[in-house]
Computed example of a mutant assay.
Amino acid sequence: MTNPKYAANSATRKARWITLVAAGAAVASLATGALPASAAERTPAPVTAAFHGPQAPDTAELAKLMAPGDLASGTMVRLGGSGVRWTGVTGPLSQDPAANFRIGSITKLFTSTVVLQLIGEGRFTIDTPVQEILPGTLPAHWGPITVGQLMSHTSGLGMPCVEFAKGDAPTPEQVISHWTDPKCAAPEYPVLTQQYNGANHFLLGMVIEKATGHSYADEVQRRISRPLGLRHTYSPKAGDRSLPGPVLADPSEIEPWAWSEGGMISNAPDLERFMTALLRGRLLRPAEQRQLFAMPALSEGVKDKDRFSMGGLMRSEIGGTVVWGKTGSMGRSVSGVFGTEHAARTVVYSLVPVTDDRDALRERIGKLVDAAL
């Protein structure tokens, strides 16, 4: 996630806005605080699993990787796809496979999906400058930033140049003001690199509300959660830090309102169903479905892996297999949802790190997804 961080003077939170995963299924931001001793010292629960299908994943390797240790105190993995059903949980996480958790920057997938639906309805195009939809939101002397550039993180927006004031629920306009203060440098064009930035999806949330006249939360419910029967997937109101039980992991240290950038709540079954529907074209029209997998034109020095499509999907390659999805973090948990083409195999994971070794955590997540495939 990565997730909106509202204390720009914190080095950890700054890193969460811009860190991308290496090795394929990586985390845009990592929560690194250790669990309290009482939680870390609990006797780890065994992996509970049930698998049915002709092409079984490497469940023995998954169980080994999920064992609590010096990288994570607990891990949840859920696999789905054609003929595949497998769930494993270890450590001090809820043993309920449908436990709720804050999905952090996985929220961005829901935001981009709604935006692509609006494009399909003719409300605007992928090349429409956001300045036309939200006049006065960005400085007049800035060059045009398109809707597609926001989804693909090629808007040129950098880090905020003004510190965020402490508060539980800043408005989207207040969040964006920290990127558009007169002290901030204007984005440089043409943009030929990707800069992962939560401001992009705050702007997209504002675009959704402007184009529909409804709240972001209502549009996600109407367009995605309700049609797919995602009963545990929603965007909480500003300032609402509650998390309905059962809860996957300790919900403490929840950061301020993340809204359309990283504020949603869901569970593993709902995320699997959402990703399956998205990858199989059940949520978008054909033209917009193609945008999910179209990669933006970048400079030759940028590798075509571990980056974002025009439709906001993270593209990663693990063991020669291309997967599409998104990572996220919130509080103490790090999560992700990925799938292969047409959702032949999907994986949802969440773990609770007990280390600040980000490279080791990225490597562990890559191995988890590789074993799942």
Rank of each mutant, 00 (worst) to 15 (best):
D168G: 11
F110M: 10
R282F: 00
L204W: 08
D356F: 01
A28P: 03
F101I: 06
M66S: 09
G331E: 04
G229K: 02
A37G: 11
W324L: 09
S260V: 01
E300G: 12
A238H: 05
P296R: 08
A372P: 09
R13T: 00
G136Q: 04
G328Y: 11
V191E: 03
D96L: 07
A28H: 02
L313S: 09
E261N: 12
A287W: 02
T107F: 01
S82K: 11
V337D: 05
A165M: 03
H153L: 10
H52S: 13
V175K: 07
D270N: 12
P236S: 13
S177I: 04
E272R: 11
L313E: 07
K303Q: 14
D181P: 02
P172K: 10
D270A: 11
K64R: 15
R315A: 11
T75L: 07
A217W: 04
G239A: 15
A45P: 00
E363N: 13
D357M: 04
E173M: 03
G311Y: 03
G91I: 11
E272F: 00
E317P: 01
F124D: 12
G136A: 08
D240E: 13
Y196V: 13
L138C: 08
D168P: 04
F101E: 06
S177E: 15
N100Y: 00
S152C: 12
A50E: 12
Q221M: 05
V354M: 04
V191G: 05
G331T: 05
A99S: 09
A140V: 13
S38Q: 10
S10V: 05
H153E: 11
A169R: 04
P296E: 07
G80D: 15
M1W: 04
A28I: 00
V147L: 08
L373R: 07
E219T: 02
I365F: 08
G81F: 07
K326W: 08
T2H: 12
G167A: 01
A99T: 09
R364D: 04
G120D: 12
L203F: 09
S225L: 07
R123H: 14
E288L: 04
V175M: 13
T346P: 10
S316Q: 10
P68I: 02
T125S: 15
S73W: 00
R222K: 13
Q289E: 14
G301I: 07
R358T: 02
V27C: 00
S235T: 05
V207P: 05
W142C: 08
I126A: 13
P54F: 10
G319M: 09
P46Q: 06
I103F: 01
A344S: 14
P256E: 07
W179S: 13
G156F: 01
P54A: 15
K237R: 14
D356G: 11
G143L: 06
D270Q: 12
E261F: 04
S177L: 08
S235G: 04
D359T: 12
S335P: 01
L248N: 02
E363R: 15
G339D: 07
V147C: 09
W324V: 05
S235H: 03
D306W: 02
V220D: 01
E209R: 03
A63I: 08
V352W: 10
P57V: 09
W259D: 10
D356Q: 05
V130N: 00
D58H: 06
H141F: 02
